[in-house]
Write a protein that binds this DNA or RNA. Structure first.
Lengths: 119, 119
DNA sequence: ATCGTTGTGAACCAAATGGTTGACAACGCG
DNA sequence: CGCGTTGTCAACCATTTGGTTCACAACGAT
């Protein structure tokens, strides 16, 4: 459903610079210039990064004279968390079940183990 | 520290096909062919996707005759969850604090609001 | 030993990504 | 008004990405 949205969010956070910007925005809004300062790239590059983050719904930009304060939108994080938790839980449950099965049958298995090079 | 690792994980999950593969692997291991079946792409393309997922530590591949069963590794999810939760919490706390401030000063603010076009 | 199945490797291609520079719009201030 | 500041847009470039096809390795089965 939100497949495309989710892709954009993950894509946006796949870049270390963008992730760092998000981290800094978590403690307060900032202007483009302020955001750009720590990095060794042009302001234009940072502007592009912001467009990606905005496209993913991770930040919003308002207007204040020439400034364009950037604001972090925390809600979108829920999208990711939900996705992650869903499948992690499934995988972990399956793991637990496997554990139980292995414990229950303390049986042959190993002797005619069909899995080669499991050594 | 895990900056590069985290980038790879987010990057890996930014692709819908890869995300779907992870979703399916959450309910059990599968061979490359099985994984490829639902998609309208070549087996080679799926093999590439698996290499990306493996590089991110999201899956491991063993050997069973010609088969290469793919197994989901749930632990890596923690990395993401930790990152996300950390900044989401910060952002939400800040939001709550702002709320409190606004509630406390039911004051002017609006009249000499420096933010243009806030309307 | 040969054949079919399963999967990987390599070369190639179009599109997207992240960066650059140059031009310019929007705004406050002298 | 004209100027400096702040930021975006556009064109361009190198690299990466996701896909293809062809070739081949690894293994079971006949």
């Amino acid at each position: 459903m939100t497949a495309d949205e989710l892709s954009k969010v993950f894509q946006a956070l796949a870049d270390p610079t963008r992730r760092d910007m998000v981290a800094r925005l978590a403690s307060g809004d900032a202007s483009v210039g302020e955001l750009a300062a720590p990095y060794d790239v042009s302001v234009q590059a940072v502007s592009k990064h912001l467009k990606v983050l905005e496209g993913a719904g991770l930040v919003t930009r308002s207007r204040e004279a020439q400034r364009r304060p950037v604001h972090l939108e925390a809600e979108v994080f829920d999208l990711m968390t939900k996705w992650i938790e869903r499948y992690r839980r499934a995988a972990e449950e399956r793991f637990a079940r496997l554990d139980a099965v292995l414990a229950a049958e303390a049986k042959p298995i190993a002797e005619d183990n069909p899995i080669g090079e499991s050594a």
